[in-house]
Amino acid sequence: MNTTLITHAAAALLLGTLTVAAQAADINGSSRDRAAASQGDVQPTFRAGRPRVWDAVVSETGVLQRGGATGASALNTTGAYQIDFPVDVSQCTYVATLGSIDVGTPASGQAVTARRVSVPTAVFVQTTDDAGTRVQRAFHVVAVCA
Score class of each variant (00 low, 15 high):
4 T>K: 02
5 L>G: 13
5 L>W: 06
5 L>K: 08
5 L>Q: 09
7 T>R: 04
10 A>H: 04
11 A>T: 12
12 A>M: 08
17 T>D: 05
21 A>H: 02
22 A>V: 02
25 A>K: 04
27 I>T: 02
32 R>Q: 04
33 D>V: 05
36 A>L: 15
37 A>K: 00
39 Q>K: 15
41 D>A: 15
42 V>Q: 13
42 V>I: 13
45 T>I: 15
46 F>I: 00
48 A>Q: 01
49 G>K: 00
50 R>K: 02
51 P>W: 00
52 R>I: 09
53 V>I: 15
55 D>R: 07
56 A>L: 08
56 A>G: 03
58 V>C: 03
59 S>N: 08
59 S>A: 09
63 V>R: 11
65 Q>I: 11
66 R>L: 05
68 G>H: 05
69 A>L: 10
70 T>D: 08
70 T>H: 05
71 G>V: 03
74 A>W: 07
75 L>R: 15
75 L>C: 00
76 N>C: 01
77 T>W: 01
78 T>L: 14
78 T>D: 11
78 T>N: 14
81 Y>R: 07
82 Q>V: 06
84 D>P: 05
85 F>G: 07
88 D>A: 10
89 V>D: 06
95 V>A: 10
98 L>N: 10
101 I>D: 04
104 G>P: 12
104 G>F: 07
107 A>W: 10
107 A>I: 09
108 S>L: 13
108 S>E: 12
108 S>C: 09
110 Q>L: 13
111 A>R: 02
113 T>W: 00
114 A>N: 15
114 A>Y: 08
116 R>E: 15
116 R>Y: 11
117 V>Q: 14
119 V>K: 12
121 T>H: 14
122 A>Y: 09
125 V>Y: 03
126 Q>W: 12
127 T>K: 08
129 D>E: 13
129 D>I: 14
130 D>L: 15
130 D>V: 15
134 R>L: 14
142 V>H: 11
144 V>K: 00
145 C>Y: 01
146 A>H: 10
